[in-house]
C-alpha cells in the first residue's frame, strides 16, 4: 500500500510539473509582460528596473524553476489587469464554482443512478423507454442551449428562479456560500441543473449498461436461487457491483464539470472561476490564465488519486498485497 501511494504521488508530481511547464510557456510566449504592466511613457530605466524585479533576465530554466517554486507556495503573481494577487482572486471565485459543480454532481447521481437502475430492471416498460429516449436529447443538446432554454422557461416565462447571479452569499471567513440563503439556493438551481443534464444522462446510461451486465452474472443467479428478494438483488448485490465505474466517472467528471462550468457560468453570469477565466482571456491576463490552468490540473490530479483510494474501499479485492 505504501509503495502504491508513493508511486501515485510521483505520478501526480510529474503530471503537475508538465502542466506548470505548459502554463509557464504560455506565460512567456504571449509577449513581454513589462509592456502590459507599464504605460507607454515609462523610461528605459523603469523598464530595466521592473525586468530586474520580475527576474525576467534570468535564463529560461531558472525562471521556470522560480515559477514552480512560487506556484508550489501558492504565489502566481499579480493580475495584469487590476494588480491584485491572482490566488486571492481565484480563491474568491472558487467557492462559487465548487458549489455549482457539487450541486450539479449531486443532482446527476441522485437522478441518474435510480434512472439507470429502473431502465435496466424494467426494460420493456413505457417509462423506461421514455427515459432512454429523453437521455438521447440530454446527450446531444449543447449546454449553452440548455442554459438559455432553462432561463427562458423558468426565469422569463414562469419567473420561478432568478436568471443570473449567485444571490445573497454568507461569508464564513474562509469560504463564501450561497447555499445558506434562500436567494442563493434559488439561484443555484438553474445553473446546476443545466450543468448536470449531460451528467445525468451519462450516469444513467453507465448504470444501465453495468446493471444489465451484472444482472447476467452467475452470482446474481445464485443469489436468486437462494431466495434473496428482487429488491435486495437489484439494489444491494447488483448496484454495488456497478458502482466502481460510476465512482470513477463521477470523480473524473468533476474535473470536466469545472471545465464545462466555463460555459454555464458565462450563460448564467455565475461569479465563479470560469467567468473569471473568460474575462482574463479577453484582457490577455496571463497570470490568471496560468493559475487557473494549474489549479484545474491540480483538481484533476487530486481527484484521480482519490478515485484510486476509493476503489480500495468499495472493492476488497484491491485492498492489501494479496489482491
Amino acid at each position: 500500500m505504501l509503495a502504491f501511494i508513493i508511486k501515485r504521488l510521483a505520478n501526480a508530481v510529474f503530471v503537475m510539473l508538465s502542466v506548470t511547464f505548459l502554463a509557464f510557456v504560455i506565460f512567456t510566449a504571449v509577449g513581454d509582460p513589462v509592456d502590459q504592466m507599464l504605460n507607454e511613457q515609462a523610461t528605459q530605466a523603469q523598464r530595466d528596473d521592473l525586468r530586474e524585479r520580475l527576474g525576467l533576465d534570468d535564463p529560461f530554466l531558472v525562471q521556470y524553476a522560480k515559477f514552480v517554486g512560487r506556484a508550489a507556495q501558492g504565489d502566481f503573481g499579480i493580475s495584469f489587469r487590476n494588480q491584485q494577487d491572482v490566488l486571492t482572486m481565484i480563491g474568491e471565485r472558487f467557492p462559487a464554482t465548487f458549489e455549482l459543480v457539487l450541486v450539479a454532481t449531486l443532482i446527476s447521481l441522485v437522478v441518474g443512478v435510480p434512472m439507470g437502475v429502473i431502465t435496466a430492471i424494467r426494460r420493456q416498460t413505457w417509462y423506461a423507454e421514455a427515459m432512454q429516449f429523453t437521455s438521447i436529447i440530454g446527450v446531444s443538446l449543447p449546454s449553452f442551449v440548455v442554459g438559455i432554454g432553462l432561463i427562458l422557461v423558468f426565469s422569463v416565462w414562469l419567473g420561478w428562479f432568478p436568471a443570473f447571479g449567485r444571490g445573497e452569499t454568507v461569508d464564513l471567513g474562509w469560504w463564501t456560500t450561497g447555499l445558506l440563503t434562500p436567494s442563493g439556493r434559488m439561484s443555484i438551481i438553474l445553473p446546476a441543473l443545466s450543468l448536470s443534464l449531460f451528467q445525468i444522462t451519462l450516469v444513467m446510461r453507465l448504470v444501465r449498461a453495468e446493471m444489465l451486465e451484472v444482472l447476467r452474472s452467475d452470482f446474481i443467479k445464485f443469489a436468486r436461487s437462494r431466495g434473496i428478494p428482487a429488491r435486495s438483488i437489484h439494489f444491494r448485490h447488483a448496484l454495488r457491483n456497478c458502482l466502481m465505474p460510476v465512482v470513477t466517472m463521477t470523480a473524473m467528471q468533476i474535473g470536466g464539470l469545472i471545465a464545462f462550468a466555463l460555459v454555464t457560468e458565462t450563460v448564467f453570469q455565475w461569479p465563479g472561476m470560469g467567468l473569471l477565466f473568460i474575462q482574463a482571456v479577453t484582457f490577455v491576463d496571463v497570470p490568471i490564465m496560468a493559475a487557473y490552468l494549474c489549479i484545474v490540473a491540480l483538481i484533476f490530479v487530486a481527484l484521480n488519486a482519490i478515485v484510486d483510494m476509493t476503489y480500495a474501499v468499495i472493492d476488497p479485492r484491491l485492498k492489501g498485497a494479496d489482491a
Binding site: S217, D218, F219, F222, A223, H237, R240, N241, I314, D315, P316, R317
Partner: peptide
C-alpha cells in the same frame, strides 16, 4: 469463481 458476490464477505 463467479457464483459468489465479490464485494461481500
Amino acid at each position: 469463481l463467479t457464483a459468489l458476490n465479490p464485494l461481500f464477505t
